[in-house]
Each structure stands twice: as C-alpha cells, then as structure tokens.
Design a protein around this nucleic acid. Structure first.
Lengths: 226, 226
DNA sequence: TGACATTAGTTGCGGCATGTTACTTATTGC
DNA sequence: GCAATAAGTAACATGCCGCAACTAATGTCA
C-alpha cells in the first residue's frame, strides 16, 4: 500500500491524485486579468501544484501564489472542484483557488497577465476554471471585501467604483455609490491626494471597516432565478 | 500505470483518491436537517462515493442522492473541497456537494434526518462539511431559488418566509417580505388553499419566475467585512 | 349563535435609501 | 484669465422598508 503510494508520488502524471490550481486575479485597465505561466514544454498553463496530505489545500494555494508574486493573495476563496475535461498534468481531479491581488503585483519570470476574455490557449479544464473565477468573485463580493482587495492599499473612490463596475459588469452612479459607501463606514480618508494630470486631484482612502450594528438588510429577490 | 490504478481501485481505503460527500439538506420543523446514513461498521456518516474518471463530480453526487431518496435534489451546489481532518473512508481529499430537497422526502433504510446543531458523532471532516452547508446555502440564496427548493411544489407564503428566516437566522417582516416577493414576479398563485386547523386558510403558491427587466439593484456594502 | 382566539393577507404612513440632475471645487493646458 | 476635465457635493423626487393597524376567514367554546 505504502509502496504503491510512493510509486504514485514519483510518477509523472500521478493519475488519481489531485492538483490545486491557482486562478490569480488582478484588475488591470478596467478588465479582469489572470496570471498565466509557461509549462516546461512551453505551453500556457495556470499555476498548479499537486495536493499533499500534510498541508491544507488553501495553504498550498497561498504558498504557490507567494512563490509566484512574493506575496500571499490579498483575498482568496475556493472554487468548484472539477474532474471534467483535460488538465495539463493529466490530473483526475482539480481544486481551483481564486486569489485576488492589487494592481501593483508584477509578473515575474515566465508569468504574465492576460485578460480573461482573451486568454491564451489553456487546457480545457484550466480554461473553465479561469472563466469561472469571475463568478466566484461575484459570489463573495457582497460579504467579503473583494473589490477593495483588487486595489492598492490606498485608492481613490473612482478606482473603487471601477472595481465594482468590473465585478458587476455594469455602470454605477457616482453619488449613490459614495453615499452607500459612506453609510457603511468601510473606508477612512488618508491625507494624501493623487493628481492624474488633468482634473481635480482625488483623495486617497484606505480599507478600514469600522464596527457597525445590525446589518439587518431586507431580503432581495432581485437576482433569484436569473 | 494502469495496473497501479486498478490496484488502487480495489483497495479498501484508496488513499490518494477523493470522495464525493453529499450534504443533503431539508427544512424540518423550522430547523435545517442533514441526511445521515449508517456505515457498514454502524457508525454515522454522510453519504459519500469515490470519484471516478468517467463521470462528472456533480453527476455522481446527483446519482448518490437519487439512490438514497429516489429523486435528484431540487437544487445543488459544490462546497469547498478539503483535505484536512479525518474522513471516515480515509480519503486524502473530499469534495462536498450541498443538495436541497423538499420536506416530503423520506429517509429510507438506515438513513435519517438530523438537525445540523445536534448531529450524531461524525468523522471530523464530515462534521465540518455538514456545518459548512448552511454557509454554502447562504452564499447562493440571493441568486438561486434555494429557499423555494426547500419547500414542496406548492407552498404557503408563510412557509416561504420561514425558509428564508431559517437561512438568514433572523425574523422577517411579513408585509415587507410579501411586497418584495410580489415585485419580483417569482411565484404564481394556485387555486388551492390549505387549512391548518385554526385560523384562516392560506393560499398555495408555486415557484414560477417570470421575465423581468433590469435587475439593476444598488451595491450593498452592508455585509462587507462582517 | 355569537363572542373570542388564531392565522392569513392588505393598507397606509413615516422614514430612509437610491436615482437623477445640477452644482461647486480643484487642477491642467492654452 | 478661460476652457476643459475630473473630483466631490447638494438638492429633489421616487421608491423601498419597517411598523402598526386593519380586514378576512376559519375553529373553539360558552
């Protein structure tokens, strides 16, 4: 039994084992980008690692991101595991983790950012996982600071609004957006301002959620059943 | 290679392989219940099956539910895969699927319903997956008809409200709930009424989402950052 | 049979949140 | 200085939500 397990571990594809696949996301130029690396054979692949018994899946994904970018993702969530279609390593099963980093993270070595709607040729399973990332982000954005974590530590309110518009795929109203944000006590102003060339400089804010009581929002049927 | 895979398939625990674990949920007596079965050794376990290459994970979970209850779940979503803690079959990795059925589904054979807050002794990993089910349901209830699928095909509006109260773990206001529901065109009345002994009989409704335009709801910061 | 309890379902009102428009403020470039 | 541009704010109308009070239909019991 142990011998078989050892043999599997040293085999090339480890059929029957699972990969942890990292879908690292960044908002660049108003579009969602995903980090793609080059495999030994030169093909484009999502970063992945084989699952091991002595480490949690999430920690393995976090470590993988750290190896690639130097930092752990600012936010991360598990995606839907899948055994369908072809994986570049021939894994029977793959568990995706969707990570989020700020716009300043550089792609080192063979890694590069690609917009999700113009991805290079990936193995079908990885393509599906990358395209599912946006849905995972949407699923969590109401309860987790996903949009905030797509930004640098200090950001303008226009940038925050653009992040939300990217995730929701629709335009938002400036005044309404800011009023709702103000009421939620989620950001605090810094004393820095940023000038983008023309126009009035924008004040920079930081994500700093303050305690507030009774998040007793009403039921929303808006999105039920498409 | 193939020989190794065959040997693994016939081994007892299949270390290195993954299980698909089913967390089948029902709303009974105002509380969320989970279907628990008895293992060969007599211990309480969540229903599970080994993942196989020639079937999608979701389909395997759906088939498992069919074997147990005679019907596929009314709704289902994948949970977060985990390799932590102990699984009853010793699986290295487990992928949970959270299914939802109506209140009329009976537990056959050794299966029985248990409230999630008073579960029998499960293996740690299965306990964690069962306790994570409610979070998975909450994650999807804004965009999927989770609460509706916890009910029979025809239901009263009071029952629907109770399902939402169960998922949200707080009381809702009757008038507000009904107004919002009306505005969403999600249910249609049947010509049946149900009398529960005392009090006025309640009209029965069916889940029948109608097309409506512009789900253009505002951004809600209420739940961001707890 | 008629008052009462119980549950279903509706209506009206005050307050708060949101959508819209228009305005003010601050900066660059000419 | 003046136009252009972008950030940020104010004011108003509309609509949604919580609340309370109301009507409606049934069973219970004196």
């Amino acid at each position: 039994m142990l011998l078989i397990a050892r043999a599997m571990s040293s085999s090339k594809t480890r059929r029957g084992a699972a990969t942890i696949d990292l879908v690292l996301c960044a908002a660049l130029g108003g579009r969602l980008h995903v980090l793609v690396v080059k495999s030994a054979g030169g093909a484009a692949v999502l970063p992945y690692t084989w699952s091991s018994d002595d480490e949690s899946l999430e920690q393995a994904a976090r470590d993988l991101a750290k190896d690639l970018t130097g930092h752990a993702p600012a936010w991360m969530a598990p995606g839907a595991a899948t055994a369908s279609k072809r994986h570049p390593a021939g894994a029977a099963l793959s568990v995706p983790f969707v990570g989020v980093v700020g716009p300043t993270v550089v792609a080192t070595g063979g890694a590069s950012w690609h917009a999700v709607d113009t991805l290079p040729a990936l193995a079908p399973r990885q393509k599906a996982m990358a395209e599912g990332a946006l849905e995972t982000l949407r699923l969590h954005m109401d309860a987790a600071p996903v949009a905030f974590k797509l930004l640098a530590g200090a950001f303008t309110l226009a940038e925050l609004q653009e992040a939300y518009e990217l995730l929701l795929n629709r335009r938002l109203h400036k005044a309404s957006f800011r009023r709702a944000l103000q009421a939620a006590y989620l950001v605090e102003p810094t004393d820095e301002w940023r000038s983008e060339g023309r126009g009035r400089p924008a004040q920079l804010f930081r994500y700093a959620p303050r305690k507030r009581r009774g998040a007793h929002r009403a039921v929303r049927f808006d999105l039920v059943g498409r």
